[in-house]
Amino acid sequence: MVGHLLEVKDLEVKFALRFGDLTAIDGISFILDKKEKLGLVGESGAGKSVTGFSIINLISKPGYISGGSVTLDGVKLNDLTDSEMREIRGNKISMIFQDPMMTLNPVLTIATQMTETVHAHRNVSKNDAMDIALDKLKKVYIPSPEKRLFQYPHECSGGMRQRIVVAIALLTNPALIIADEPTTALDVTIQAGITDLLSELCETDDMGLILITHDLAVVSQVTEKIAVMYAGKIIETGLTEDIIKNPRHPYTQGLIGSIPGTQEMGKRLTQIKGMMPTLTDIPKGCAFHPRCDIGEQICRETTPLLESVDGEKRLIACHIAGV
């Protein structure tokens, strides 16, 4: 069997709190291949970031991975020691965050930060490290990269900083990039440049991309696949085009209907009543049932499983819409 780039299976993350354990990620599974781009979407608190962090085993206390497995290129990451995991994080998976300053050190020049990263992972000369850094800056279309190398982060604009972060993520030629809201803090004209860049890089550099965002429009432009999360679970997943054109789960339908611009100007937007539950009060049965318009008795009692409709490609977790 030819393996996938990434296989996440029944992943479960809990937070150990004083009054007991809270389940933040409740058994999610997905697959990603080389060059493939997956959008992980959902509203605030759905569990997108926790999912991203748990893939690279960077859940910090009180959080812990309580079940499931993550397999990268055939290697089961759960079984690795800390130092082996660090190796993977440095070499095979890179992560990009919303705030570029989570990655950049304000008191070091771009050159220093980049060459340090190169040296940490590869045994190369100073000059070679500098060449690699320059090469990656060119790759992310930084204008006059030779000059930028010797500047500090604060001398760059927000969009420029995020490009530099992408360049740093590329230094180790990773197989997978996890980008957590990489353009959320940026203006649209700059956002467009970064998303175009990420798409292009997946193609040219054979990488997989997990794009975490609350913005379905961004995801629909970049990714081939989408997984929609709600209260710690994936409730619908499939090909981006299919889901955007024809969402099946009532939550995905509501979410898409809520986006201004998809509906006639000036008319009331479709609205989903209520809001997503917090981890402490996730309802029994389907977590969405208090907000759902088509729910029935069974929804209040039994949790629906993520199951296939339309043959293989589309999975949804809904008792009613799934049949």
Partner: peptide, 24 residues
């Protein structure tokens, strides 16, 4: 023109962004 061309639109696969040179 540049600003509106950059808006991500749901389900539009191949957007034509007008790329602005330079920075604000």
């Amino acid at each position: 023109k540049a600003l509106l061309s950059a808006i991500p639109i749901l389900g539009e696969r191949k957007p034509k962004h007008i790329k602005l040179k330079g920075e604000v």
